[in-house]
Design a protein around this nucleic acid. Structure first.
Lengths: 349, 349
DNA sequence: GGACTGTCTGAAACCGATTTCAATTCAATG
DNA sequence: CATTGAATTGAAATCGGTTTCAGACAGTCC
């Protein structure tokens, strides 16, 4: 594959350094990696040259001969979603601290792209793959995908923020049940009993688990569940808006709404405001994810936080450990915390 | 570097395929790339094996022997910022369409990380580097950074969403002046004369250019500029909030506020609401970037859009062209468009 | 001084692809 | 049937590193 580059600055290699220093490439390599001792005088000469030319070893060549590339692939549904971008950046920083780097792909909720990303990372010889969102969010995983993951796992560990049936992935998952417990306790301690759960889709595991715990919390406290208070839709503002509008068609309006995430919550706020009610005086809102959106809505949102920094570290650290062949716990849990802001308060109606 | 992997699935190579097919690796390579004709019968046999083993050629080895890796490095200030994430995803999609892939790093506004990213991409042998934000946003670039970029450019083209003095980078920049023209025309056509410009920092080029055009627009229409109506701060909600609070200390409150971006605008909205005024009846807001935030504030923001899809395509296409050594226009402009929403209206005071 | 040890060092093989070059095979032509 | 140009094919070199292996050299101990 020839190419006529206008910008033909000769790329300098380890051999160029070796030649100018009057040593062999092996010696330069040893200096570069500190993998063996080199006579001080030569070492200094080599170091000077490396510096002079600002020489950086070719990562492709290095990755080809080493067994490890020190790179972790991350598959995300969509970094434009603040939940994913927060988690991604947390991973990037954790990886950097450990001397690794990170490669990102977005599947944009297109299922083919998920498999493609797996292939891409396989070709790039990443040391481990972290998948956040997508198939691993689904309650039931289709077999062909699990099969693909299984076959990849024979060479590269896969870590997942969710679960994947029939593939021995490692999981780092949010304790959704606990998150919902926190939310319910908070609301009920404020005297709320008419509590709606708005947004999300029950075929998504994290939503389903939340719903289960929502039910259990009501039941254990003897509060009857009202089916009409659970309105599913999706995860964006528009969906939240429309779902909340449906709630306003009910004869009895709830005093509190649990939003599936901050994004949807922003739409819920809009609906409530358009109906002339105020938050939290007339209706309290609590949501999940505690992204920066929670800080810019009016009122600011009470939201369940996952400590993204720690979450990212858990993901990266288990990815690295697994890449090194160390035994890892199959399922680790992220403990949620409720961050109180302006959108929730005592029941007043 | 030895490594005992628990998951020791043997990685299969082009040689394994070749051997099982009873041909040479060269032949397999030709089938893989369609680079030369291969007898149909062998071709089929090879294709079957590739399929059977789900063989993917090692991208490192490929990149090492080819001159091109078909990869573009993207340096971003922070993907958590919706402006960058929108642009990044647009680039990713444009790249994919062209058969390239994309690598992301975030500098998190730490200047060392900017230089590090440059080095990283150099090692990874990306075909081109796109830098969005960071140094290339600064009005004056320090010499050492420009020097580094210049030296990198001898082997790898650098494309920038901004400018960089003393380095022959290619630029794809937003026409800030035109953006501000649109905003000013819009507001003035609604009868606004008391117009504030809130947020941002004048050492950032894009902000400074906007300010220049803000001044010119006032002047050319004979509206006196009021220094106290220009309040600088930063680009986040909190900064917008505080800056707007300062404006409320003035004896005469403006009828319109230009926010430096949607993010800051959300804070401005908060300040206005806390002062008991309504938008747009009492104060109109127009902002820049048209990120999804513009859609979730209450009211939704009138904001200047950059057509991220097209913007990303311009960046990627010139990156690819430059990587191929084609001559490119040194500076290309992105034409902004004003998207009208709920936050701006006719002056009423 | 000879044997032994430990420190440095370079040659060569290897990682997994691509590509050049020359050889071989093949079908068609006269 | 010999000739010829085109279609196939494989051996070997190459990309830029790392690592093994063995040799060279220096210092230490008896």
């Amino acid at each position: 594959m020839e190419k006529e580059k206008l910008n033909t600055g000769k790329t300098i290699t380890i051999y160029d350094i070796a030649e100018e220093a009057g040593v062999s490439a092996s010696t330069v390599s040893r200096v570069l990696n500190g993998s063996a001792s080199v006579r001080k005088e030569k070492k200094d000469r080599i170091l000077d040259l490396i510096n002079k030319y600002n020489f950086k070893p070719n990562a492709l060549a290095k990755g080809l001969s080493d067994t490890a590339t020190k790179t972790i692939g991350i598959i995300t549904a969509d970094v434009r979603n603040p939940y994913y971008s927060a988690l991604f950046v947390a991973c990037e920083m954790a990886a950097e601290k450990a001397g690794y780097r990170v490669n990102l792909t977005n599947t944009l909720n297109q299922i083919e792209r998920e498999a493609d990303s797996l292939d891409l990372f396989t070709q790039q010889k990443v040391d481990a793959i972290i998948q956040m969102g997508g198939r691993v969010d689904d309650l039931i995983t289709d077999d062909s995908y699990a099969g693909k993951v299984r076959s990849i796992m024979s060479t590269t560990p896969v870590i997942v923020t969710g679960k994947l049936d029939k593939a021995p992935v490692l999981s780092v998952v949010i304790d959704e049940a606990e998150g919902m417990n926190l939310v319910m306790e908070h609301l009920i301690s404020y005297g709320h009993e008419k509590i709606a759960m708005v947004g999300g889709n029950m075929s998504v595991a994290s939503t389903f688990y939340k719903y289960q715990r929502y039910q259990e919390n009501l039941k254990s406290r003897g509060i009857p569940e009202r089916g009409e208070y659970v309105v599913n839709s999706s995860y964006d503002p528009e969906s939240g808006y429309e779902a909340m509008n449906k709630i306003f068609e009910l004869p009895e309006i709830p005093t509190a709404v649990i939003a599936i995430n901050d994004f949807a919550a922003s739409g819920i706020i809009r609906s409530i405001r358009e109906h002339g009610l105020s938050i939290p005086e007339d209706i309290s809102i609590v949501s999940f994810d505690n992204t920066y959106i929670a800080d810019l809505t009016l009122p600011k949102l009470t939201s369940v936080d996952y400590n993204y920094k720690h979450f990212g570290e858990m993901l990266i650290n288990t990815a690295i450990a697994a890449a090194k062949g160390e035994q890892c716990e199959a399922v680790q849990k992220v403990e949620p915390k409720l961050v109180l802001r302006e959108s929730s308060g005592p029941v007043k109606r």
